[in-house]
């Protein structure tokens, strides 16, 4: 597998603010890569550097084998972008914008355009200023999805969409994956990332702190356990990897590092297990853990 996007040691400062701090990101060709992080973590800055709209202070960024700052126009022929804040020209209709952006990229797939308009239930005859936030995003999405490109860069593309449209969007992204396209999806909607992404990178304070498949990441986190035991839960508190232990008579609740699950369960079994609920870590927990560490 080759890398569609390969970034290392990227630094970008805006005056005193260090927006990107030694950022490393790798997106394989053909995968849907989730790009997660709190507000202001540097997601959009990274994307803008990849698009050649901003210039990195140091570090290297390669996009589809080229330099995003130098080979801008040539690279843009092969990608489509949906910005986080879609702002349309007030007096152009949605249809005109879709066709404009498509033509600038070198052509629109007519059939696909009509199909997408229908699926997203978008009226292309309305003027830019009359669209809601969600509808503006649909315009940008249709324009991007209807063009014949290798790479889609989507910056929080669904933050204004309703759940029905979110489902349509997920369908579309899966379709793109099947066609072999690469997708970089910056998102806040964890269910979406969980449903779509092959791999995830978590960015915090301008630095990628975690990257890998969801299974990889889960491995690093804790499982919640609550159990009713036959006898008192002796020895549990002393085990490594057990956190937030609450004991109420014979009932226990705690979290355990996923790596330490085996010895802990053995200890429970030794006390005699009557009921047991185990919850794998949700992406939320994973996410929150990384976010909260920032504070």
């Amino acid at each position: 597998m080759t890398s569609a996007i390969s970034v290392s040691g990227l630094v970008k400062t805006f005056g005193p603010t260090r927006a990107l701090d030694d950022l490393t990101l790798d997106v394989q060709t053909g995968e849907v890569h989730g790009f997660l992080g709190p507000n202001g973590a540097g997601k959009s800055t990274t994307i803008r550097i990849l698009l050649g709209l901003l210039r990195a202070d140091s570090g290297t960024a390669r996009l589809l084998g080229g330099d995003p700052w130098k080979d801008t126009a040539a690279l843009h022929r092969r990608l489509a972008y949906v910005p986080g804040d879609v702002n349309l020209w007030p007096n152009l209709t949605g249809g005109e914008v879709i066709d404009l952006l498509g033509r600038l990229r070198g052509g629109v797939d007519r059939v696909r355009r009509e199909e997408l308009l229908e699926r997203f239930e978008l009226d292309p005859r309305k003027k830019g200023r009359t669209y809601s936030k969600g509808n503006r995003q649909k315009v940008a999405l249709v324009a991007a999805l209807a063009s014949d490109v290798e790479l889609l860069i989507l910056d929080e593309p669904t933050s204004g969409l309703d759940p029905l449209m979110e489902a349509v969007f997920q369908d579309c992204v899966n379709h793109e994956r099947e066609r072999g396209r690469t997708v970089l999806l910056s998102s806040h909607i964890l269910a979406e990332v969980e449903a779509l992404c092959d791999r995830v990178s978590i960015i915090r304070g301008g630095h990628v702190v975690e990257t890998g498949t969801l299974a990889d990441l889960r491995h690093l986190t804790r499982t919640s356990i609550s159990a009713e035991l036959a006898g008192p839960p002796d020895g549990l508190a002393g085990l490594t990897g057990v956190h937030d232990l609450v004991v109420e008579g014979n009932r226990v609740r705690f979290e355990v590092d996923s790596d330490e699950l085996d010895p802990v369960l053995k200890q429970l079994v030794a006390s005699g297990v009557r009921t047991l609920t185990s919850q794998p870590p949700t992406l939320e927990e994973l996410f929150l853990r990384h976010y909260e560490d920032a504070k």
């Binding site: 152009l92 209709t93 914008v97």
Partner: peptide, 17 residues
């Protein structure tokens, strides 16, 4: 009120825009 416009566009270049 703004009136609806064309569903298709004919602009295809920055100078056209």
């Amino acid at each position: 009120a703004a009136r609806p416009g064309p569903a298709r566009g004919s602009i295809g270049s920055p100078s056209g825009l």
